[in-house]
């Protein structure tokens, strides 16, 4: 059954068209990778799925689990199981990771009609998920992303993903700027969460990540459109021939 269906999506910002008719279907249990050169709309696509309203959607629709995504607010989409790992995670001085995550979990639970998680349960969950990404012991009291190294920020995204246990994870360049050890940690975090019920959309422009997280499909987003779709071997071919080959 399809989890996400993007149909003929067009969007623009300040009158400039960025997405020019994107079609993409992701079924439950699948891992998709989107590749493509910088500035071609990959992050834009991810943000629109998550609900950022700085872009004007001019045409098309997105159906998620049978619902029109544009009817849901950002936080409702999150509670429905959509998670975006940010290309540039935001620093929030003065808000501790513990309070941030606890609020997120409990507001998602409230949306689903569940009671809040107890502090005990929460601490336990946090300890458990922290291990996946090998983030330090003081994590809970640190301000969200403040003073984090590039690698720590990316690990923190995976940590949050593990805490929230989403149905659709979109990871926007979670691999960029990571050394090989950090990349392994991030990849094993993603792999640990793979299941038949959840799907992953990886955005990357290196095929390196795809050696660790094997995708079912690779798409190339070029000049606002998906110009090619293929099996995982497409990533290798792209790396060899370069994006100019697409023209």
């Amino acid at each position: 059954m399809s989890l996400l269906e993007i149909k003929n999506l067009h969007c623009s910002i300040n009158g400039k068209e960025i997405l020019k008719g994107v079609d993409l279907t992701i079924n439950k249990g699948e891992v998709h990778a989107i590749m493509g050169p910088n500035g071609n709309g990959k992050s834009t696509l991810a943000s629109i799925i998550a609900g950022r309203d700085t872009f004007d959607v001019t045409q098309g629709e997105i159906i998620y689990e049978g619902k029109n995504l544009f009817d849901l607010s950002v936080e409702e989409r999150a509670a429905e199981g959509i998670f975006l790992g940010f290309q540039y995670p935001v620093e929030i001085p003065g808000v501790s990771i513990a309070n941030f995550m606890k609020t997120a979990i409990n507001e998602q639970r409230k949306y689903k009609g569940l009671d809040p998680m107890s502090s005990m349960e929460f601490m336990k969950l946090m300890e458990e998920k922290k291990k996946i990404v090998e983030l330090g012991t003081k994590l809970a009291s640190r301000s969200v992303n403040e003073g984090f190294s590039g690698g720590e920020k990316k690990k923190n995204e995976i940590f949050q993903m593990a805490m929230l246990n989403p149905t659709l994870s979109i990871l926007d360049e979670t691999d960029s700027g990571l050394d090989i050890d950090a990349l392994r940690i991030v990849a094993s975090g993603v792999n640990a969460l793979r299941s038949n019920e959840s799907s992953t959309l990886l955005i990357t422009h290196y095929q390196r990540l795809l050696e660790y997280i094997i995708p079912d499909f690779v798409h190339v987003l070029f000049e606002g459109k998906i110009v090619r779709t293929g099996p995982k071997e497409l990533a290798l071919e792209l790396e060899e021939k370069g994006y100019e080959w697409l023209r």
């Binding site: 999150a78 935001v90 997120a104």
Partner: peptide, 8 residues
């Protein structure tokens, strides 16, 4: 946006 994308 970052916070809301986590369900807050």
């Amino acid at each position: 946006f970052y916070m809301r994308s986590r369900g807050i």
